[in-house]
Design a protein around this nucleic acid. Structure first.
Lengths: 132, 132
DNA sequence: CTGTTATTTTACCTTATAGTTAATTAACTA
DNA sequence: TAGTTAATTAACTATAAGGTAAAATAACAG
């Protein structure tokens, strides 16, 4: 596995670091130089440069040159793709359809049961039959 | 940096792998055992088990026990948080506000310019003043 | 009890990540 | 030209990730 990652993977991977998310958040309010981005961080400049490289490779930022500064700016396009992927699961978190309901539906379909739980939100239900 | 990651980080990190995204996609259509999940993958069972552990740690799946099977099911809650984070940038990709526009606004505010680009979508504009 | 199927654990390898310090490059300033 | 500021590159370290093969567990089926 060299350095070839699909877009989604490198986008999510870039977003998986708090420092990088902070950088994007900062850039949402306008471009910033590397040192401006580094200032609030508790790490050295080279570390920040590396994070910027990750963001660049993911296509989430670009850098231009202005005198001795390399201002970075946000490119949100990859975020749209990430968003599109995640949105496919919206119904699951919205309808609390998270497997519990699936389980209950299944149960309802295959067995006859009486007490329906009042608020079936993310509670783990153990299939009664533990040991024989 | 031990093994303590904030939720968002571990969620994005879990989503950063195509195999794991495929697993979630598969689980969106109902629970599946580990071997069912492993079948279409070109890797060994232990590798799949590891991916499942990553997904579990991120809270994206849970596993129950049914005889000798460990069916996995989706828990979409963390995806909502990921979605919420990404959505904050929606205006950037929707309005194509991606720094180019910011730059143009800024330019418009500080200088007087004449030719407005027709479709200012993600084109790199070089600040004219290269050398003095 | 023995075997079989499903899954995990262990031990190991390779490559990627995240960070450091020190040196280097780039462009302005005096 | 020399000095300063901004940022990157190089070299190095430590740890995490993703994978494998082989051994260990778990639970069912005879």
């Amino acid at each position: 596995m060299t350095t070839s990652q699909d877009n989604l993977s490198s986008t999510f991977s870039a977003l998986a670091d708090p420092t990088r998310r902070a950088i994007l958040t900062r850039l949402a309010s306008g471009e910033a130089s590397v040192s401006e981005l580094a200032k609030p961080m508790k790490m050295t400049m080279p570390a920040v440069t590396k994070h910027l490289k990750v963001l660049q490779r993911a296509g989430l930022i670009r850098q231009e040159r202005k005198a001795q500064f390399r201002p970075c700016y946000l490119v949100a396009q990859p975020l749209k793709e990430a968003s599109d992927w995640v949105e496919k699961y919206r119904r699951f978190w919205e309808q609390s359809l998270d497997r519990l309901d699936l389980y209950l539906r299944e149960l309802q379909a295959t067995e006859n049961f009486q007490k329906a739980p009042k608020k079936p939100t993310e509670v783990k239900v153990k299939k009664g039959r533990k040991k024989k």
